[in-house]
C-alpha cells in the first residue's frame, strides 16, 4: 500500500461542507487540484494513486454532470468506480437512505460520493460509514466540490481570489452552490454580493457576510466575477417569480447588464444553463467572458484532488493503527 503523502494537511475524514474548512485547507485542495489539471490535458490521463480503492457514487437525485465528473476523476486515479442511482419515492425515502448506506458500508467502499435532495442527509449518512464521504450536493445546504472548482477557475483566470468582487445572482434561496460559494469566497478574502429578487433570497442572508442587491444594474457595478445560478423550471411560474419573461428582463444576464462590471469580468454558471432565462445565449458562448467550460474541465481535477486527499487520510489512519 502507498504511504501517505500529505502528512494529514487536510485533517478531515469527510468532505461535507466548505463551512468546516479553513482558508489554508481550501488553498491546499486547490494546489493539489492544480497539479491534476496538466494530467487531464495530457494524452495519458491515468494515474495509479487510487489503485485498489473503491469509490461509490451514490445519487439519490438525478445528475449527469456531477456524477460523470466524479466517475472520471475516480477512474483517472485508477479507482474502481461504481455508480448507484437510488430512485427516491416521495414516501419513506429516508429509510431507504439509511438502509442503503449501511448496506453499502458493509461492502467496504473507501469513498462514498453522495447526492441527496434533503439538506443534512449526507451528514446523517456519513455517521453510518467507515470510509470517507464526499458531499456531492445535499438539498439547499452545501455543494463543496462545486465551490472548490469555482474557486480554482477564478484563481487560474484572475491569479487570486483575495480582494475580488463577486456577484452571485439568481435563486440563492434554493441553492447549495450559492451557500458553499459564499462561505468559500468569504474565507478566501473576496467581497461577495448577492443579486436576486427578495422571493429568491433566504431570510437573514445578509448575516452570512454578503451585500444584498435587488437590481442587477447596481449589483454588478465593478464586479470581477459574476456567478449565475440556475432557476429551476418549476419555480419560474408561481409565487417565486411571475414568469420567465419577467425574470429574464430584470435578472437574466445579458451584455447590457454586464456593461457596468469590470471590462474583463468573468461569467460563471454551475450548469446546466437555462439559456434565455438566467443567461443570454450569446453571452454564455462568449469566450472572452464566459468561464463556463473551464468550470467543467477543472471540476474533474478538483474531484481528483478530493478523492486523493481523503484516501490519503484513510491511508494515514491505517498506518497509525498499524504502528
Amino acid at each position: 500500500m502507498n504511504a501517505p503523502t500529505y502528512d494529514n494537511l487536510f485533517p478531515h475524514r469527510h468532505l461535507l461542507g466548505i463551512v468546516d474548512l479553513s482558508a489554508g485547507e481550501i488553498g491546499f485542495l486547490l494546489d493539489i487540484s492544480d497539479s491534476y489539471v496538466d494530467l487531464n490535458r495530457g494524452a495519458d490521463k491515468k494515474q495509479t494513486k487510487l489503485r485498489g480503492r473503491t469509490v461509490i457514487n451514490l445519487f439519490f437525485e438525478n445528475s449527469t454532470r456531477t456524477r460523470t465528473s466524479f466517475e472520471l476523476a475516480g477512474k483517472r486515479l485508477s479507482a474502481d468506480v461504481i455508480n448507484m442511482s437510488v430512485a427516491t419515492s416521495s414516501i419513506k425515502k429516508g429509510e431507504t437512505m439509511v438502509d442503503t448506506s449501511m448496506t453499502l458500508n458493509a461492502m467496504h467502499p473507501d469513498v462514498l460520493v453522495v447526492r441527496h435532495p434533503d439538506s443534512g442527509a449526507v451528514k446523517l449518512l456519513s455517521e453510518k460509514i467507515n470510509g470517507a464521504v464526499i458531499n456531492a450536493g445535499d438539498g439547499s445546504h452545501e455543494h463543496p466540490t462545486q465551490a472548490l472548482l469555482d474557486a480554482l477557475t477564478v484563481r487560474r483566470r484572475c491569479g487570486r481570489i483575495q480582494g475580488l468582487i463577486v456577484a452571485i445572482c439568481g435563486d440563492v434561496l434554493h441553492s447549495r452552490v450559492a451557500r458553499s460559494n459564499i462561505y468559500l469566497l468569504n474565507k478566501m478574502g473576496a467581497r461577495v454580493r448577492l443579486v436576486a429578487p427578495p422571493t429568491l433570497l433566504p431570510t437573514a442572508v445578509d448575516r452570512l457576510g454578503v451585500e444584498v442587491f435587488h437590481d442587477m444594474r447596481t449589483g454588478l457595478v465593478d464586479c470581477d466575477i459574476v456567478m449565475m445560478l440556475r432557476l429551476q423550471t418549476e419555480r419560474m411560474r408561481g409565487t417565486f417569480v411571475p414568469s420567465t419573461r419577467e425574470y429574464f428582463h430584470f435578472f437574466g444576464l445579458d451584455s447590457e447588464k454586464l456593461a457596468v462590471a469590470k471590462p474583463n469580468v468573468l461569467v460563471m454558471h454551475p450548469g446546466p444553463m437555462n439559456r434565455g432565462v438566467e443567461i443570454d445565449s450569446v453571452l454564455a458562448d462568449d469566450i472572452t467572458h464566459s468561464a463556463i467550460l473551464d468550470q467543467v474541465e477543472l471540476g474533474v481535477a478538483v474531484r481528483m484532488a478530493c478523492l486523493d486527499v481523503l484516501t490519503d487520510n484513510l491511508r494515514a489512519n491505517v498506518a497509525n493503527e498499524e504502528s
Binding site: S119, G139, S140, H141, R179, T203, A204, L208
Partner: peptide, 12 residues
C-alpha cells in the same frame, strides 16, 4: 426561519 435555517439550507 432565520439565519440558522439559511445556513442549514432548511425551509423556515
Amino acid at each position: 426561519d432565520g439565519e440558522l435555517a439559511t445556513r442549514l439550507g432548511l425551509l423556515g
